[in-house]
Amino acid sequence: MLELMQQIVNGLSLGAIYALIALGYTMVYGIIKLINFAHGDVMMVGAYVGFFSVSMLGTNIVVAMIFAMLACALLGVIIEKVAYKPLRRATRIAALITAIGVSLFLEYTTIFFLTPQQRIFPQGTFPVQDYSLAGISVSNKDIFIFISAILLMVILQFIVKNTKTGKAMRAVSEDKDAAVLMGINVDNTISVTFAIGSALAAAAGVMIGVYYNTINPLMGILPGLKAFVAAVLGGIGIIPGAMVGGFILGILETLVSGYGNSLYRDAVAFGILILILLIKPTGIFGKNTGEKV
């Protein structure tokens, strides 16, 4: 029982990381239906900005995170303007290939300038405190990352549901042409979405960097893929879905490693995901829109 509780705690903190990345993923998807494979790499860039801010400018972690978020918001907007905007009228899969191109570009440009070696966040960037609650070990990092994920989700949900920009986002997501007719500046709305999504990725990147201490230019690939899976699982485009998907994936992986065979972890985790999708083909929170004839 104690072990199960510990495993669930482990799963929640792993899931929180997936959720953090998945939030930005799903947001970008929601508005232009683009599987932004470069999202994980934007996260990586964010982690590097945070790293240099801490190690070279000597800022504290909060300032580093703000720097990273600003830098990545800008990067996200640039990527959108340069690489995705010309493809807005093209097929979604064409945009997907561009996203793969952007992803490779970010990875290998970083390798070119910063070598493929990992970098280590200076000790004490985030003062770690371990707690033991009735035999279950939790650290303040876990709590921090867990609360951050939930908080960011709530803020995002608020922005999308209750602000003017959010309304514009939903309108653009629903029907771009009608949104234009309603006087919404579609380009700006999409830019804002990318800025927010990329800033979220940067925040996740810095947190992951601090959480695991190390960052490297290819660190975005695996979490990026997992976050995509989490977002789809929750119902892609739906903000609470991304978070729930992230937590489910995290707990699933943890339980497979803990009680099944860790050598088969990804296979079993994917297998269960596919099962969930077969039962609920549009993800857990997905609306089953009936076929329009």
Partner: peptide, 21 residues
């Protein structure tokens, strides 16, 4: 116990918790 992880993994607590037991 004979357990595994995958290159790129950064979180090993699930397996470690199992090993601890």
């Amino acid at each position: 116990a004979e357990e595994g992880f995958i290159k790129g993994d950064r979180d090993f607590r699930a397996t470690l918790t199992k090993i601890r037991s």
